[in-house]
């Protein structure tokens, strides 16, 4: 049985690789809290490659413009249509920034309107319980980006089920650390990633 592998999507137009530490941190959290079979390293996979379909969980991030090519769009559409899960995070945490504007434009063109994920959604109870919706990050209010607390995550939902999860909260910055650093923290800062992955793996 193939283990869960954290896949980061490679796309042509921007800096897809800006969150390269995120995979290790998420894998670390999954191992800390669950029995899931997990691959110990993440993988980078091109959006327009056939390999994409071997990894039904896909993480996308960046700071720069997101303009998918025809092949990337075709694959993404097929990927989600078949049951794949996309988690996309704005590494700028800036709703006026080029990543947010272009990424949401691309997602809307492909999948339709992005909706707010309700606070009571199953995602927030998939493993840990988040009564107030998505946990805030230290980076949202760091003086950069739009300096706002983004209360909701956005998503493409079908019959209430999230196929694409979009975040302005800059989890990519929050989770960009070496997993070893967690030993200095009382609370695992990337616990919410467990909810996201468990949700993707079971819904």
């Amino acid at each position: 049985m193939r283990p869960f592998t954290f896949a980061t999507g490679v796309y042509a137009s921007g800096d897809w690789e800006s969150g390269q530490l995120v995979s290790a941190v998420v894998i670390d959290s999954l191992a800390r809290h669950t029995d899931l079979e997990v691959s110990p390293t993440g993988i980078n996979v091109a959006l327009d490659s056939a390999e994409l379909f071997e990894y039904p969980f896909l993480y996308l991030t960046g700071h720069l413009a997101v303009r998918f090519s025809t092949g990337e769009r075709r694959n993404l559409l097929r990927f989600v249509d078949r049951g794949g899960f996309v988690f996309m995070d704005d590494h700028n945490h800036d709703i006026n920034g080029v990543f947010h504007k272009t990424a949401t434009e691309e997602l809307t063109k492909l999948f339709g309107r992005l909706e707010q994920v309700p606070t009571r959604h199953e995602l927030y109870r998939a493993f840990f319980t988040y009564e107030d919706g998505p946990p805030a990050t230290n980076h949202e209010m760091n003086g950069w980006g739009d300096n706002l607390v983004h209360e909701h995550l956005l998503g493409i939902l079908r019959d209430g089920r999230i196929d694409v999860l979009y975040s302005n909260k800059d989890y990519s910055s929050e989770w960009s650390m070496h997993p070893e650093s967690k030993r200095f923290m009382q609370v695992d800062p990337s616990r919410f990633a467990v909810n996201i992955v468990v949700y993707a793996l079971t819904r």
Binding site: M1, R2, F4, T34, D35, L36, E37, P56, G83, V198, L201, T202, R203
Partner: peptide, 12 residues
């Protein structure tokens, strides 16, 4: 089963 891709997609 176990939480994982196989159970997810078989259930789906």
């Amino acid at each position: 089963g176990r939480a994982g891709w196989e159970s997810k997609f078989v259930a789906a």
